[in-house]
Design a protein around this nucleic acid. Sequence first.
DNA 1: AGTGTAAATTTTTTT
DNA 2: AATTTACACT
Length: 724
Amino acid sequence: MDVSYILDELNDAQRDAVTADSPGTLVLAGAGSGKTRVLVHRIAWKIKVEGLSTHSIMAVTFTNKAAKEMRGRIESLLGSSLNHGMWVGTFHGLAHRLLKAHAQEAGLPNNFQILDSDDQLRQLKRIHRELALDDSRWPPRQSQYFINGHKDEGRRAAHIDDFGGDLYLTTMLKVYRRYEEICRQQGVIDFAELLLRALELWRDNPAILDHYQQRFKHVLVDEFQDTNAVQYAWLRLLASKGMAMTAVGDDDQSIYGWRGARIENIQQFSKDIENTHVVRLEQNYRSTATILKAANALIANNSQRLGKELWTEDGDGDKISLFAAFNEQDEARFLTDRIAELVRDDYRRSDIGVLYRSNAQSRILEEYLIRAGLPYRIYGGQRFYDRLEIKNALAYMRIVELRDDDTAIERVINTPTRGIGTRTVEILREYAREHQTSLWRAALAIIENGLLPARAGNALRGFLALVEDLAEQCRDKPLDEQINIAIDRSGLLAFHEKEKGEKGQARVENLHELITAAAAFEPEDEDIEPLRAFLDRAALDAGDQQADEHEDSVQLMTLHSAKGLEFPAVFIVGVEENLFPHKMSMEDPERLEEERRLAYVGITRAEQKLFLSYAESRRLHGQESFNSLSRFVREIPNELIDEVRINNTVSRPSSYAQSGVTTSQQASAAAMGIALGQRVLHSIFGAGVVLSFEGQGASARVQVNFEDEGSKWLVLQYANLQLL
DNA sequence: AGTGTAAATTTTTTT
DNA sequence: AATTTACACT
C-alpha cells in the first residue's frame, strides 16, 4: 500500500514525530510549526501503517473548534468518514460521554445536567444567603474560585484540612460542602466536576477502567501545556497499563494557569513514561522572520522555559507597526483606517484578526467598524447559549427533562411574572432545605398540605401545571417544535415582545434563532434523546457563533481565543501597562510571565503584517486612565518596529476640558512641558503619571500617580519633575 | 405582587 | 459605563 502521502510534504522533525514508535512521544511544537498537521498525520500513520483501528484511538483537545477541525482533517486525509468509533473531543466532552455511559457507577442520575459557571455562581449566591454570609465580606465569586480551584486539583471538601479552625477555610469549606450536597440532590454537575467524576469513575471501578485500557491503544493530547492536575491524572490512569500516548504542546503558549493548567505536566510526562521520545518542532511556516524575531526576543524574558527558538526560511517582510493613539477612540480610528487600507490592497476582511486583552475593549472597536461599514465577527465574548433569554428558554426545557433542577426552577419560576413572588419562593426554599429535597418536590408537598395563602398557592399550582403541560405537549414532537411550544406557552416570547427598545427585539430574534438552531441540530449520538443531547450541547459548546458566518468579515477576539488561529494581518490593540499586562497580573512574577506568553501567542498569530497600538489615555469602565506603553513592546528589538503616528499634528483631545483645567493653566503647564497623562520622574517617589493640574505660576500644583507610592499632589515649582 | 428608579457594585482570560 | 441589587411606590 502506498502511504507516502502521509509523509510527503513533511520536514524531518515532523516526520520523526509522525512515525515515532515509543510508549511516550512528546512533541514540543512551536507556534506555526505544523502541530495540528503532525497530530493528524500521526493518527493516519497509526491507522494505515501500524494497523490500529479507529476504535482504539482517542484524541483530546481543549476546544470544540479544535476537535471539529481535527476530525475533519483526519477524514479528508484518510478519505473516509470516522463515525463514532474514534473518540475525538475535548476533555470535558469525553468525560461527559464517559459519565453518561456509566452514570450509575459514577453515582449520578441517568438524566444528570451540566451546571455552567453562571448557574454555578447563582447557586453559590443562594448558599451564601442561606448560610447568612455577608456578601461583602464573603463574595460568592471567591467561593466559586475556591471550589473550582480545589476541584481542578482533585480535592473535594472532605480532603481539605481547615488547619484547626482557620476562619477563612472553615467558611469556605462550609460553602463547599453545602454546594456538593445541593448538586448531588439536584443531579447537576459543574465543569470541574465533570473531569473529577470521570477520574473517580476509573479510579474506583477497576473493571470499567480495564475495559477502556483494553480498548484504547493510543491516546493523543493536544495543547498539553494546558492540562490540569485532574486531566493529567485521568490520562495517567488510562495509560497505566503501557498504552502509548502522544502529547503535543508548547510551554511558551501556556495561558490557562488561572484555570488550573500546569505547565509542569510537560516535564512530568517524560518523567512518568519511560523512554519518552522528544521531538522539537521549531521551523515556522506561518510568519515572516521579523515577526518571529520579535516573538523570540519577547519570550526570552521568561525564566522558566524548556527552551525553543522559532526560525523560518522566509524573508524579513514588513516591520511591525506601532501606533501611539491619544485615546481609545483615536486607536479605533487608526484600526479602521488601516483595515480599510488593507482591504483596498486586496486583503480579504477575514484575513484580518483584531486581538485584545479583555472583552470590554471590543465595544468601541465595533462602533468604529460599523461606522466604517466594515463587517466583523466576534469570537467568544457573550456566547449565544449564555444569553439571558436563551438560558430562560432552555431552563423550561431542563425542568421538563429534570424536575429537580433547582437552578432552572429559580430562573423561570416567575419569568415571565406569574404571581409567584419572593416570599413564596422563600417558603419553597425553606421547605426544600428542611426536608432535604428539591424545589419541585417542595412545591408539590406545599400545595398538597395547603401551606400557602390562596393566591400564592394558585399561582404556584399554575406553574406546576404549566410544566406538566409542556412535558405533555412536547412528547414525541420534533425538537424545534418542543422549544417553540415552550417559549410560547410559558409566555416567554410574549414577555420579550412586550419589552421595549431594541433589546427586546434582539431577544425575540435570538429566541427564533434558538428554534432554528434546534431544527438544524443533529445529535452526534443517535441513542440519546434529542432534547437531552441538545441541552448538553448548549452547556458544553460555545454555540459556534451564530449568523453571518459566510460573509467576509474582520475577525475580533480576545488573545485567549486567538490561540490556534492565524491571520495574514494581525492587530493587537491596547498594548499598555495595566491592560496588557493586566494590572491583576502585574504583582506576581508567574502571572506576569503568563501575560508575556499571551503576548507571544498574539504576535505569533500574524503571518505577514503585525500592528500594535496603544492609547495614552483610555476610558474604561467609566474611568479615565493614563497608561504607558506595554513593557512587552519594549522587549521587542527597536529595529523591528516602525513607529507610526499619523495624526501627530492634530491637537490633543479634550482631557484638559474634562478635568476643568483652564486654557491659561494649560498654557503654563504646557510651558513646563507637563500634559495630563505625561510620564514624569521624581527624585524620591520615582516614576509616575500626571493625573491632574491646578493653579498657576508659583502655586501651580500637579497630581501625579506614582507607580510605587500612589497618587500625590506636588507643587510644580519644587517638585523638580523630569519628563519621561 | 409588580414596577420603576436610585444606589451600589463590578470590571481578565473560558471548558 | 453598565449591570445588578435595593427600595419605594402603585
